[in-house]
């Protein structure tokens, strides 16, 4: 199985997820497939703005689009290696932050690990 070791992809995914509007779009898409127009409505954003965010999400592999006549509805990427990679990248970053903090705690002279509380 491919893993989330490829740093460039991870950067793209994190950059994509860093924008609140794009997280909101993902949240909306978790309910099912929708068109760009339908996405723009509740977010009070212009269609070009939504199209831009969708482009970023698509490049990051988080969503897919298909052609349906003149419509190009969006949906979350199907379950698969890409989706798992993204999830693992998120997990890796969260755990790295925690363990870096634990390093500091273990190195601290006041670490209570040597003097457990009564």
């Amino acid at each position: 199985m491919k893993l989330a070791e490829h740093a460039p992809d991870m950067d793209v995914v994190f950059a994509a997820l860093a924008h609140p509007a794009r997280r909101a779009i993902l949240d909306r898409l978790s309910e099912g497939e929708v068109s760009v127009m339908e996405l723009a409505e509740p977010f009070d954003m212009s269609q070009p703005a939504v199209s831009h965010h969708i482009g970023v999400l698509e490049k990051a592999g988080l969503i897919r689009r298909r052609i349906d006549g003149t419509r190009r509805p969006c949906r979350l990427s199907p379950d698969g290696v890409a989706a798992i990679d993204e999830w693992l990248a998120v997990l890796k970053t969260a755990l790295s932050a925690n363990y870096d903090r634990l390093d500091t705690l273990l190195a601290a002279p006041t670490s209570t690990a040597e003097n457990p509380t009564p």
């Binding site: 997820l17 993902l26 949240d27 993204e86 998120v90 970053t93 932050a97």
Partner: peptide, 12 residues
């Protein structure tokens, strides 16, 4: 992704 963890992604 949609609820808990994504809140911290930007900061991470």
């Amino acid at each position: 992704l949609a609820s808990g963890m994504e809140e911290g992604l930007e900061a991470s």
